[in-house]
Every structure is written in C-alpha cells, then in structure tokens.
C-alpha cells in the first residue's frame, strides 16, 4: 500500500496537518500539497505556472514556518495557488520550484490567514521524515 502524503487532524478552530516524506524535501513538498488541498477544498488545481522559491530560516521550524508563510503570501499578493513543489534543502536553506495556477481561475477556494508554530514539529522517523503544522484560517 502506498503511504499517505499528508493527513488532516482535528483542531477546534484551525487546520492541523501532518505531511510525510522519505526525506525532508519530500515532507516539505507534501506539506505544499496539503496546503493546496486545503485551499482548493480538495479540488483540482492545474500546473500552469512556475514560481522560484528561495528561503532561509534560523532553524528547521523557522524554515517550515517561512515556507508556509510564502505559500500564503503568493496566494494573497500574487494570486498564485500552489499544487506541487520540487525542493532541495541544505541545512536551514531551501530552494526550488513551486508549480500552480492563477487564483482567479478558481471559484471555490478557502483561505489561510497565517502559518503558526502551534504544535509544530519536524522529526526523523523510520520511514523518513514527519512534519506537522497548524494553520490559522
């Protein structure tokens, strides 16, 4: 059976998800998919546009927060919704490409206000990496 890329968990007011990957890059990439799944309310988003991404964080958690923050920024300021990411991570630096489409082409989208550190973790597990975050919605 193929392992799940991401899962959503119960949270009273906000959105909590966990993403998995055989390495950290894949866990981040699957986090972008989780983000996309939430925003698109599970709908299909096409991959028509590419955005470069280049980030640095004080530590892994800050990098993860910064990554999610960037996805929100692109949604609000540049009208870009991500569907897939291809990333490389070196220490606390991340770079790569985001694939997605223009927000205005889609009708039924949900918003995210901010990333948060609440209940955030990034940990090595037997099968690779597991990351968790709560989004303020």
């Amino acid at each position: 059976m193929k392992k799940q890329k991401f899962e959503f968990f119960e949270h009273t007011a906000d959105i909590k998800f966990r993403a998995y990957g055989k390495n950290l890059e894949e866990a981040f990439e699957n986090s972008a998919s989780a983000f996309s799944f939430h925003v698109s309310r599970g709908g299909k988003i096409k991959s028509n546009k590419i955005k470069e991404i280049n980030l640095e964080g004080a530590d892994l958690e800050a990098l993860f927060y910064g990554f999610l923050d960037e996805l929100i920024y692109l949604l609000d300021a540049e009208g870009f919704i991500v569907v897939k990411a291809k990333l490389s991570i070196d220490e606390n630096k991340l770079k790569g490409k985001l694939y997605g489409d223009e927000v205005k082409k889609y009708k039924d989208l949900d918003h995210v206000k901010a990333a948060t550190y609440a209940e955030m973790y990034l940990k090595k597990v037997k099968t690779g990496w597991e990351v968790q975050a709560v989004l303020d919605v």
């Binding site: 004080a58 927060y65 929100i72 609000d76 206000k113 901010a114 550190y117 303020d136």
Partner: peptide
C-alpha cells in the same frame, strides 16, 4: 485581512530572532 496577518507573522519572527 492579509496586511494584518503578515504584520503579526513578521514580528513573531523579528521577536524570536
């Protein structure tokens, strides 16, 4: 809206730094 959300995020980072 996004202006306020981003402002709070920005300062959380500045403060922890």
């Amino acid at each position: 809206r996004g202006l306020g959300h981003q402002t709070a995020s920005d300062y959380i980072h500045k403060m922890e730094k």
